[in-house]
Nucleic acid binder design. Structure first.
Lengths: 178, 178
DNA sequence: AAAATATAGTTTGTTGATGAACTATATGCT
DNA sequence: AGCATATAGTTCATCAACAAACTATATTTT
């Protein structure tokens, strides 16, 4: 049994907000609305990912990152270089090696050397991998429908726009740190 | 040097969206808008947290979870039980033990037994811990201002509302899985 | 042509989280 | 009073990620 879920996520968010607002009343200059919003983001995103990960593990026996890599391969005509995949998924190359290892071990992808550039390999989804993705899509679709219930298209666009903006601001910040 | 940042986060988001849309054109029933939006969430939130974590590590020598626990203690009149803190921060109790260990080791918090309930302890922020939080607040404030630039109050409310809705839907989903 | 620099992928050790199991204690039920 | 159940916090093993360093190869510069 998970050792997290004493309270629900909603209850934790309420309690977190209350605690931060209380803390802010004794601290000058803390932009508590921003702190709370960022913390909500950082609580909800991992919780969504964890739930997705548990479903994928249960139904496919692989991790969420492995599954996502299969989707990304499908979006690249079936094959891609690990360095490309790690860029697209914003992960480390070392991690992508681990993910590739796991997929190859289960026969869901293959590694083949690049004919033109011997530094590179091509990771390609197999027929078994395609079948697995096809099998899980209905469950994914219904899960996502459930999770987005009550959030209209206009609000989703607002969220997407805000996330892009946050990413751009973070990129600018990271550039300024070097 | 970080092995992730070949591309910027923005570039990864564009590439991810393109790859998922391409994948979806060959897969019936994949709600690609939702997939993309969830994946953006799951890329941006950890990136923000990682950046914050690096700053905190650099300026305070502690992790982001340790720092956040100090803030939560301030919001609880200085003391709280680890089980309470883990609920508020939506973390495992085992993890909160690790966080408490780190804070106590650095003299930023103390553990004291509860007089009424010998199962419980109180984790209390020390004067040193308060000073550390006070010292970091200006940097946090400016970082958060930077990261939210270009996102107006109305849009922030839309994002907050969507996050609460996502949390509620996820709680409902988790309840239905038991 | 040779040397310097950059890129691709891997290996290794570390980190921060989790899940399971444990001990100690409190509460509720009979 | 005694037993069953629940809660609090800890320990331990595991996992999925990272950072650093490495080897091999390609490209650029001199």
């Amino acid at each position: 049994m998970s050792q997290i879920a004493q309270r629900s996520l909603c209850e934790s968010i309420e309690a977190m907000e209350s605690a931060f607002r209380s803390a802010a009343s004794g601290i000058d200059g803390l932009p508590v609305d921003d702190v709370v919003l960022l913390r909500m983001l950082q609580m909800v995103a991992p919780a969504l990912e964890a739930a997705f990960g548990r479903e994928v593990r249960k139904h496919a026996g692989i991790g969420k990152t492995e599954f996502r890599t299969l989707l990304l391969l499908l979006g690249s005509d079936g094959c891609a270089a690990p360095s490309e995949l790690s860029d697209v998924d914003h992960l480390g190359r070392a991690n992508m090696t681990r993910v590739a290892d796991a997929l190859v071990k289960r026969g869901l992808a293959t590694r083949t050397a690049d004919a033109d550039d011997r530094r590179r390999i091509s990771l390609c989804i197999t027929a078994k991998g395609r079948k697995l993705v096809t099998r899980l899509v209905p469950g994914i679709a219904s899960g996502e429908t459930a999770v987005f219930e009550g959030i209209g298209m206009a609000q989703r666009r607002q969220v997407a726009g805000a996330l892009r903006r946050l990413a751009a601001n973070l990129d600018a910040w990271n550039r300024s740190q070097r």
